[in-house]
Design a protein around this nucleic acid. Structure first.
Length: 250
DNA sequence: GCGACAG
DNA sequence: ATCTTGTCGC
């Protein structure tokens, strides 16, 4: 597991973070269809936290898009870079997610994020942000509708309904399992909404959530437990070395 | 002004 | 996100 420090110049206030979003938003590409479903690599990314100990762990898991077999995995650990603020989730997750992606031994292909892309107060959610920073095609698949509205899709798997911010379709409520709560798909970078939904459906043949998300979630939870176990191995009463310090040391 | 609000 | 017991079902 690689270690990462908080980048220099990382936003320290909500105002600064919102300004970054407003600036980077112009770089999002929305006119590309993205890779065809069922081909190449698809990578899930997710993050687990221990706020008490100021530890964050990210995981990236590469799947073969056709078989959904795991091809590669990587994890990264760091310190929490931002508090959780609705609309600013990316600033909490991105430094460690980038480190996990960098540690992969192969190309990620399409990146599937746990959260939103376009479906965001300023149309620049985690998936958009990660896409602009990496140049990779990205989509967001969230478990909750956030502040957006939607009509309940039909009960059949594959049914969908627009996810609306007023009159704007910012994503789609997509039923991946018959009769089960839909997931909320939105475009990140360099992928169309239709294609994002097709990928999501292809990645969720059995469960509500895509396999990319399930694999990344399981891995970052295991990695967080491991990181906390190692921290508690130290002699009680001894000042604990922080991830920041171990990243700086050479 | 108050509440709601991805993870 | 995380905290948490039992329970229903494949």
């Amino acid at each position: 597991m690689t270690t990462v420090s908080i980048p220099a110049g990382w936003p320290a206030t909500e105002q600064e973070a919102r300004a970054v979003q407003d600036e980077l938003r112009a770089s999002v590409l929305l006119d590309e269809p993205g890779p065809p479903p069922g081909t190449g690599h698809v990578t899930g990314v997710d993050v687990a936290y221990d706020d008490e100990r100021d530890v964050v762990v990210a995981a990236a898991v590469v799947l073969d898009a056709a078989s959904l077999d795991v091809l590669a995995e990587a994890t990264a650990v760091g310190r929490i870079s931002f508090p959780y603020v609705p609309g600013l989730l990316a600033f909490r997750e991105i430094p460690t997610v980038l480190a996990a992606l960098d540690a992969l031994p192969c190309a990620p292909g399409l990146v599937v994020c746990d959260g939103y892309g376009l479906a965001h107060p300023r149309r620049f959610g985690l998936a958009s942000h990660l896409g602009v920073l990496t140049g990779l095609p990205t989509i967001g698949v969230a478990k909750n509708p956030f502040t957006f509205t939607y009509a309940e899709p039909a009960a059949a798997r594959g049914s969908a309904a627009p996810l609306l911010a007023g009159d704007d379709e910012v994503g789609r409520a997509l039923r991946t399992r018959a009769g089960v709560k839909p997931v909320f798909v939105s475009v990140g970078h360099r992928v169309s909404l239709d294609n994002a939904c097709a990928h999501t459906l292809a990645l969720a043949p059995e469960f509500r959530l895509p396999e990319t998300t399930r694999r990344a979630d399981a891995l970052c939870r295991r990695a967080l437990e491991e990181a906390l176990r190692e921290a508690s191995q130290a002699i009680p009463g001894t000042p604990q070395e922080t991830p920041q310090e171990s990243a700086t040391r050479h």
